[in-house]
Each structure stands twice: as structure tokens, then as C-alpha cells.
């Protein structure tokens, strides 16, 4: 059982890392701001989400698990708030008045 859970953790965590890598690569390589934004938000949210998901079995209690979920929720909220701002900034920069 524990082995199975450990396996799940590792798969999820490393899948999360893949998203981080993909997001960073997109951030660095994509040509324009709005496509970078797309790459980033997905990587960001899914990467952290998968890592949190993977760590849930390792949390060792309800409170730590709850903390993990709150952490993810907060990161999602922050991303959702900044997203429109970044889009607006990108628009303003792409098309200067």
C-alpha cells in the first residue's frame, strides 16, 4: 500500500515538474507576450497542482493535507488575479498609443 502511494506521489510530482519545465521553456522561448502568458498560466497552476496532489498521501494528517490544498487554492487565486493584468499590460505594450 505504502509502496503504491509512494509511486503515486513520485509520478504526480514529476509530472508536475514537467509542467514547470514546459512553462519555463515557453516563457523563455515563445516569441510574444500573450503566447508566453498561455504557457505560463497552465504550467503554473497544473505544475503546483500536481505536486500538491502527489504530496497529499505523504502529508500525514488532515491538517497538513488541508494546508496543502489551501496553498494550491491561494496560488490559483493569485494567478487568476494577475492574469487579466498581465494581458492588459501586454496589450498596452504591444500596441503603444
Amino acid at each position: 500500500m505504502s509502496l503504491l502511494l509512494d509511486g503515486f506521489t513520485l509520478v504526480a510530482v514529476f509530472a508536475g515538474i514537467l509542467f514547470f519545465v514546459a512553462g519555463t521553456a515557453g516563457l523563455l522561448r515563445f516569441p510574444d507576450t500573450s503566447s508566453r502568458l498561455h504557457a505560463l498560466t497552465k504550467a503554473d497552476h497544473l505544475g503546483l497542482g500536481l505536486i500538491v496532489l502527489g504530496l497529499l498521501p505523504q502529508a500525514g494528517g488532515v491538517l497538513p493535507a488541508l494546508k496543502l490544498l489551501v496553498i494550491w487554492a491561494l496560488a490559483l487565486l493569485a494567478g487568476a488575479t494577475v492574469g487579466p493584468l498581465i494581458a492588459r499590460l501586454a496589450r498596452e505594450e504591444d500596441a503603444p498609443p
Binding site: 512553462g23 519555463t24 516563457l27 507576450t33 508566453r36 502568458l37 505560463l40 504550467a43 503554473d44 493569485a78 494567478g79 494577475v82 493584468l85 498581465i86 494581458a87 499590460l89 501586454a90 505594450e93
Partner: peptide
């Protein structure tokens, strides 16, 4: 600025 904000968020 948009790119910098993104990178900071990442």
C-alpha cells in the same frame, strides 16, 4: 512589464 510580472509569478 508584463513579462517581468509573469516571471515573478512563476
Amino acid at each position: 512589464a508584463a513579462d517581468r510580472v509573469m516571471a515573478a509569478q512563476l
